[in-house]
Design a protein around this nucleic acid. Structure first.
Length: 511
RNA sequence: GGCCCGUUCGUCUAGGGGUUAGGACAUCAGAUUUUCAUUCUGGUAACAGGGGUUCGAUUCCCCUACGGGCUACCA
């Protein structure tokens, strides 16, 4: 096999959709698996839909996700430029080549004329309203107009497009690596515009020309392109490039978590999760879209989650590093049907990956969060705190809220809690415990626990019965990590102070 | 509407002519724990329907239903 070359070819019309990230990922995995090249091409042939910042957003998203671009916009390469707007000058000659070979034609119809055609067909109850085999001879184009008239219009620079001339009565077959044989009758296809009147190519022409020129071997893209794939086959054929036509693989779509249709930004907003890799603010409307990065997802977790949405390794392994994904990836194991987007599973992956993070790294994150509160703490202490928390959280941003009591003395406990859990006996044990802590030299969790047990025992009660009150005294919470480990970190003075504070407060309730 | 693609637990999926139809997330129950979480154990839960082919079909074929995509001088 010739050297694998694949491309990810988004259009810069807004933030990159999460489905686009998955498409990029599969391209990347396939390239790496076969020692090939991953190319980024920007398909900005629609000047009306261009959104400033979108291209940068795409590049930053891929970088964050760990998808490395070998060639294309960014790193450059032998086929530069990789932005289609900058390649504008190269498309027209191919379109004209098609015209000369009889595979395409000039069309001069105005928008009104096209509308009229559609309406006419609609009223006549036609199955499809298209500019094509059955209708092209009724329109104003180089097939119907005298040659001299066409020539005149062209030299006068009259607005026109170039349309593909779909052949009649042909069955177009293409082999899709995921779906197998796909068959379409040419009558179903319309005479797609190849060159627009603004001089830009449409997607169909540009993608075929560029894929050929850039020596793309495999086109891996979303299923929404499947219906136009036969058209592209015709283009390769007309251009005389059929020999070097890339292989196609049309990926199943990412679907809404509930209901029907493909995943959209609305679903994320509605159900409270991102559908974009990074935060995005629309430069025109100011509308904000949340991103996975800012929502606290680790790129490795998101990638792992995405990889398994539509592909599986055939083993029971669930956790994959990028390297492992590369090793096991294959197009054959991509499923054919769309995959519902289940954010629960994404959360689970994040939890798994968060646990694997070194304590020092989590401690740095916590230090960062504390900084915004104007608090500074020794790294060594933060590492101890973080090690207590890491198995209990899903996102790093939970670090601060879950550890606040280490840095702030808790407020007085709820009256209702006191009424339920407090007693003279509890009060007595806690007082004795605070007393014992005063004299304690060894402030290790083990020792503190032992001390609590013996203190409680002496007063004829089990340690378990004062655990909860003690937790509230120390942390202000009724749930949390191992209390004795917390006490150890809090330190002698702070523990005693907090216990005494609560003792004072609770006195009126028990006397 | 037309065309194309698809359909295994709630979700992601494995499997495949004869299986107790497997795993993961979620969910439920139990165990552990000073609480919560974790962890461990166990449970509930699926081959869309109808016809063929076959000794036998969830698996192969056809039809129906349902779902999705496309149907622009957008990608």
């Amino acid at each position: 096999m010739t050297k694998v070359r694949v491309r990810f070819a988004p259009s810069p019309t807004g933030p990159l959709h999460i489905g686009g990230v998955r498409t990029a990922l599969y391209n990347y995995l396939f390239a790496r698996r076969h020692g090939g090249t991953m190319i980024l091409r920007i398909e900005d042939t629609d000047q009306n839909r261009y959104v400033p910042g979108a291209e940068e957003y795409i590049i930053e998203s891929l970088r964050w996700a760990g998808i490395v671009i070998d060639e294309g916009v960014g790193p450059g390469g032998p086929h530069a430029p990789y932005r289609q707007s900058e390649r504008k000058h190269i498309y027209r000659q191919y379109a004209e080549q098609l015209v000369h070979a009889g595979y395409a034609y000039y069309a001069f119809d105005t928008e009104d004329e096209l509308d009229a055609l559609r309406n006419r067909l609609k009223e006549a109850g036609a199955e499809q309203q298209q500019y094509g085999i059955t209708t092209r001879m009724n329109m104003r184009n180089s097939l119907t107009l005298p040659a001299r008239e066409v020539q005149r219009l062209l030299t006068e620079n009259a607005p026109h497009v170039i349309r593909l001339k779909i052949p009649e009565g042909e069955v177009i077959k293409l082999h899709d690596l995921i779906r197998g044989e796909v068959t379409v009758h040419s009558e179903q296809l319309d005479d797609k515009v190849l060159m627009k009147s603004d001089g830009m190519p449409t997607y169909h022409l540009a993608n075929v020309v560029d894929d050929y020129l850039m020596e793309i071997t495999h086109v891996i893209r979303g299923e929404e392109w499947l219906p136009s794939a036969p058209l592209h086959v015709l283009l390769y054929r007309g251009l005389g490039w059929e020999e070097r036509m890339p292989q196609f693989a049309h990926l199943p779509l990412l679907l809404k978590p509930d209901g029907h249709g493909k995943l959209s930004k609305r679903d994320g907003d509605r159900m409270g999760f991102p559908v974009f890799p990074l935060n995005w603010t629309d430069p025109f409307t100011g509308e904000k879209s949340p991103g996975f990065r800012e929502a606290g997802y680790l790129p490795e977790a998101l990638i792992n989650f995405l990889a398994l949405l539509g592909w599986n390794p055939g083993t029971e392994q669930e956790l994959f590093s990028m390297t492992e994904l590369v090793e096991s990836f294959s197009l054959e194991r991509i499923s054919k049907s769309g995959a519902r987007f289940d954010i629960q599973k994404a959360r689970w992956f994040n939890q798994q990956y968060l646990r694997k993070l070194p304590d020092a790294q989590l401690a740095r994150q916590l230090a960062e969060q504390l900084k915004s509160e104007g608090i500074e703490q020794p790294e060594e202490k933060l590492i101890r705190i973080v090690s207590l928390l890491k198995e209990r959280i899903t996102f790093t941003h939970e670090l601060l809220p879950q550890s606040k009591f280490f840095f702030y003395a808790p407020p007085v406990p709820d009256d209702s809690f006191i009424r339920k859990k407090w007693s003279g006996q509890v009060q007595e044990v806690l007082a004795a415990y605070a007393q014992a802590l005063e004299e304690e030299k060894n402030f290790s969790a083990d020792n503190l626990k032992h001390l609590l047990e013996t203190t409680a025992q002496k007063l004829g009660i089990k340690a378990g019965q004062v655990m909860q009150p003690l937790r509230v005294a120390l942390t202000g919470e009724t749930a949390g990590p191992d209390l004795m480990a917390i006490a150890e970190i809090l330190g002698q003075k702070e523990c005693i102070r907090r216990i005494n504070f609560v003792l004072q407060y609770a006195k009126p309730f028990v006397s």
